[in-house]
Amino acid sequence: MNEFVYNLAIWLDDTQWSTMLHESYYMYNWVESTHVLTLMLSLGMLFLIDLRMLGYALPEVSASKLAARLNVPMLVGFALMFITGILLFYAVPVRTAQSLWFRIKMLLLVACAINALMFHRRMNQSVGSWDLEPRAPGSLRWGAMLSLVFWSFIVICGRFIAYDWFDCSPSSSGFIADLSGCIDGQTRF
């Protein structure tokens, strides 16, 4: 699996567009800035919904209405983050594919998606009974709390990717190197 990921990253790295994106000072920085700034739209909307469920934000506003109205801008934000995230990966594929933080981030994204699906299912089933209550029922509060925690760790991992603490090197070995997917004899680091 790690070899497949490494070879895929090498193949992407060899494409002309990857090099151009990586070496373009302004384009790369614009893509990265857009990735970060869309946090305000995507996570901004999501956190307001989560905080509403926990009773910390907009407690007088109908929870289902707030979630429904903020859903569209939130999804637009996530779409932008997703596109720019793919471009960032494409610009630096080998290092990113072997970043411990990137791998944890991807796992957390999957966890977030599962949590969001479960959260929406539970909310749609029960919304009539508590919609105008300041706090959502316990199971939904747990979902909102998990969402806040997962996304906070995603942002932390995203920030940590920029640092080279656990980058693969010719001497990499051990547990962290295994998790990062460093492979024996790799030629690019």
Binding site: M40, L41, S42, L51, V155, Y163, W165
Partner: peptide, 23 residues
Amino acid sequence: AAFAFVEAIHLLGLAVLGGCVIA
């Protein structure tokens, strides 16, 4: 690591602030 962690908290604060402004 402490600096990077605080950077991430800064971004989370920015996300919440952005959410309030946009809403």
